[in-house]
């Protein structure tokens, strides 16, 4: 019996000192997190409540049903998505080869390209659109030239190419920053030379080695650009087109609840779209990162040979 009673004493050999917690509780961090969550969630929750609360009828989803039935919403949202995808495609086609060439061949031009790409960030969209409007006003002067057809295509209401061009310029800072970060994270020169020494052509190297290694940066730039296009209002409104953001404002002038419901739906759709893009393009990298994290944890316990 004596032996049996001894065991509990051994287990409590390192008694906790009274009044001294083993680890201080992170009250400060929780408070900051709570405040940030409130900052983001309160407006969303208020908007949601506004859309479902009808003072006469109580809780109703009528605004959402109306929005989904509204042809204008589908058309404008479709246009925004198409503009966004075209902008991302054009921006990447323009920026990926440029950044790769600058990194590999013309590193001295890096600062110049950076400054050029950052200009749209400091230039107000209204100034940009003023310039674009002036150029578009030349249309009448060009009526007798082959350029007239191009001008017509530029502001086709169904798919205004001029918006794609302007949005591409506006997306340059996001694409530059993302791609620059991605390029700095890999030893591009060595990877390209390794690929070339193994017989790959330059385009082959770009597709097989460079782009896969830049995938996280490309996805990040694409997501930011897409989000920018989906929310852009000034340029589209001044040029007289009606993508989703403009449609929402127009609807809000006479039907506030529908406008906010559309905003809520757009929020969901945008999140869904961004999530889809991130998953489609970044799946393998995510697995790689997960493996790496797991490996790092494992390495702490063993010596690598």
């Amino acid at each position: 019996m004596a032996g049996m009673t001894a065991t509990p004493r051994t287990r409590t050999a390192t008694p906790r000192q009274p009044g001294r917690p083993l680890r201080s509780r992170p009250y400060g961090s929780v408070l900051v997190l709570l405040l940030a969550a409130l900052y983001f969630l309160v407006p969303v929750a208020a908007s949601l409540w506004f859309t479902v609360d009808d003072p006469g009828k109580g809780l109703t989803f009528g605004a959402y049903a109306k929005g989904l039935r509204d042809g204008g919403m589908a058309t404008s949202l479709g246009l925004s998505v198409r503009l966004g995808l075209a902008t991302v495609a054009l921006g990447l086609l323009l920026m990926v080869p440029t950044m790769v060439v600058v990194t590999l061949r013309l590193p001295k031009l890096r600062r110049v390209v950076e400054v050029l790409c950052m200009v749209p960030l400091i230039m107000p969209p209204i100034a940009l659109v003023a310039g674009v409007s002036t150029v578009l006003s030349w249309e009448d002067d060009l009526r007798t030239t082959p350029l007239w057809g191009t001008f017509q295509a530029l502001h086709d209401k169904n798919f205004p190419l001029v918006l794609v061009l302007v949005y591409t310029v506006m997306s340059l800072p996001f694409l530059y920053r993302s791609l620059d970060g991605g390029l700095r994270a890999v030893d591009l020169k060595t990877l390209v030379e390794a690929s070339r020494s193994l017989g790959a052509s330059r385009p082959g190297t770009l597709c097989r080695v460079v782009v896969p290694n830049l995938r996280p940066a490309i996805v990040s730039g694409a997501v930011l650009s897409l989000a920018m296009v989906l929310g852009e209002f000034t340029v589209a409104n001044v040029l007289g087109f009606e993508p989703f953001s403009v449609w929402m404002v127009h609807v809000g002038e006479y039907e506030a609840q529908l406008s906010v419901a559309a905003a809520m739906l757009s929020l969901l759709i945008t999140w869904g779209l961004l999530l889809l893009l991130t998953n489609l393009a970044g799946g393998r990298n995510r697995n790689r990162n997960r493996d790496r994290d797991r490996n790092r944890t494992g390495n702490r316990r063993r010596t690598t040979v």
Partner: peptide, 15 residues
């Protein structure tokens, strides 16, 4: 050129 090369820095394709 059909020349194999091993580089100083780790040059394996990370993906």
């Amino acid at each position: 050129r059909d020349i194999g090369m091993v580089f100083q820095s780790y040059s394996l394709f990370p993906t």
